[in-house]
Amino acid sequence: MVKQERAARTRRSLIRAAAEVFADEGYVPASLTMISRRAGVSNGALHFHFTSKEALAKAVEEEAAQEVRLITERCRLAGAVGLQLLVDATHTLMRSLDDDVVVRAGFELSGDISRPHGINLRREWRRWVESEVERAASDGGLADGVAPDDVASALMAATVGFEVLGARDDREWISRRTLTRFWELMLPAMAPRQAIGTLVTCGSCHSAMGGEAGVEEPV
């Protein structure tokens, strides 16, 4: 049991170290030696758990993908629906990109053209956004004349743009403030007039899910 626990800890350390290296350096420049040093283990210990850099990348992607799926599910379980669910999920995703290097590395790997067969988190996120926008439209949650495809495209362009800029340039791009301002601009164009006053641009489940303290006001 002790050996199994130690092996599990080593594996988790290697995944996190790989995520840090992939997020900082990119997939191609990263090496197993860099990862083993970051994890504080020998190359032999690394190879016991992972046969290659690609195997490590897949483990990082799988863990990141699981966390992104949990993000959307947690927001749904908190009671958010329609556009509010999209608001809440984008806030939680941006916070995860800021706080969780595994999620950040998973998205970084998704944009690496040298790995066309990996788990593409951006594609998975797009599918979820498109399905939720369609659901909102069918439930009357979009303003008259607003096309679901246009809403999904705008949201994907913004969130992926924030993710890329936040990872490489300035974390302010993935801050709560930036995303709140985006939703303040976009929701009046997307939502039915009678629903606008009920939508919380800073995220209705933000405080309950470990976000920054603050007063949450409707749009």
Rank of each mutant, 00 (worst) to 15 (best):
M1W: 15
M1L: 14
V2K: 11
V2W: 07
A7C: 02
R11E: 07
R12Y: 03
R16V: 06
A17T: 02
E25N: 11
Y27D: 01
S31E: 07
L32G: 01
T33G: 08
T33E: 10
M34G: 15
R37Q: 12
R38C: 14
G40P: 13
G40A: 12
V41Q: 03
F48Y: 12
F48K: 10
H49T: 03
A57P: 09
A59C: 13
E61A: 09
E62A: 13
A64K: 05
A65T: 00
Q66G: 14
I71D: 00
R76A: 13
A78S: 12
G79F: 01
G79M: 04
A80N: 04
L85I: 06
L86D: 00
V87S: 01
D88H: 03
D88V: 04
T90A: 08
H91M: 06
L97N: 01
D98K: 04
D99C: 14
V101L: 09
V102R: 04
G111S: 05
R115M: 15
N120P: 13
R127V: 06
E134L: 08
R135Q: 02
A137N: 06
S138V: 10
G140Y: 09
L142H: 00
D149W: 05
D150M: 13
A152V: 03
S153R: 15
A157V: 03
T159E: 09
G161H: 13
E163D: 06
E163P: 00
V164G: 04
L165T: 12
R168Y: 05
R171I: 04
R171F: 02
E172M: 09
R177F: 09
T178M: 08
F182K: 05
F182W: 12
A191D: 01
A191H: 05
P192C: 13
Q194A: 15
I196V: 15
C202A: 15
C205H: 04
S207H: 06
G210R: 14
G211N: 07
E212G: 11
A213Y: 02
E216I: 11
P218G: 07
